[in-house]
Amino acid sequence: MSESPTSSKTSRLLGVAVALGAIALVLLAFIAVEPDVRINAETGQEIGQFDAVRLLFVHVPAALIAYLAFTVTTVGSAVVLWKRSVWWDVVAGASAEIGALCAALTLITGSIWGRPIWNTWWEWGDVRLLTTLVLFMLSLGYLAVRRLEGTATERARRSAIVGLLLFLNVVIVNRSVEWWASQTLHQKSTIADATIEGNTLFTLFFAMVVGVGAYVWMMIHRFRLAWLERMSDRFGTDDLLAARRAEADDHARIASAVGGTSPEGESS
């Protein structure tokens, strides 16, 4: 196996553990967990989420990681502004990328789940849906700002400000959307009244553990990659400077070999 510059023994172990966990999760989700079917006591009809309940094992961990990741981004942004930390700048950026990915995954799996259960791909009355969607869009804006030009310091400070405002904006959007939905649509978040128990509960818990493991593993690699990019930027300049100095030294050496004196010597 060839050595990857972003992996270490620990990250490889974690990666293998997460991969095995993911395989176990698929087995659990499709074999151990029964479809959610209950009987309505009054009508005798079959109700429940049926096979759609299995989407929970992707949807819930993705949502958890998305919010966890953006919390890390906000904390990182605060530390960047406070202590001018390069380390936290790289962490904030890496975490936001994973957060955006997980927010998208949350929205997609939620939408697929909503089609059979709520009979609609999208529900304007659900505050969490709207907040997550706006959060996803805000995060794309944050990532766009990270890619803007400027020196590393300028970019770090600018991103940190947008990262801090990200948190403020999510809170404001969440509050206003909640109010909007309660005043206009008259439909509260339609969480199915099923109680989660047995294998389903265990699998859900297991899925969250695997999810957090995957987040940490992705963070390690994304962080190291971004860190190497930083270093290559910095050392790239140093190398160029060293090359220029060597060139100047060569000229001086040639001049002294030919004329016996260096250019400086001639002028003095």
């Binding site: 706006v134 794309l140 947008v162 206003s176």
Partner: peptide, 27 residues
């Protein structure tokens, strides 16, 4: 102000500004 002097301002500004202003649009 954050995007002052940026070449990419024209495309990034609406992306940043419009989601932030969604509560204003609603209210």
């Amino acid at each position: 102000a954050l995007l002052a002097g940026q070449q990419a301002r024209e495309t990034v500004l609406p992306m940043l500004l419009l989601p932030v202003l969604s509560p204003v649009l609603i209210a």
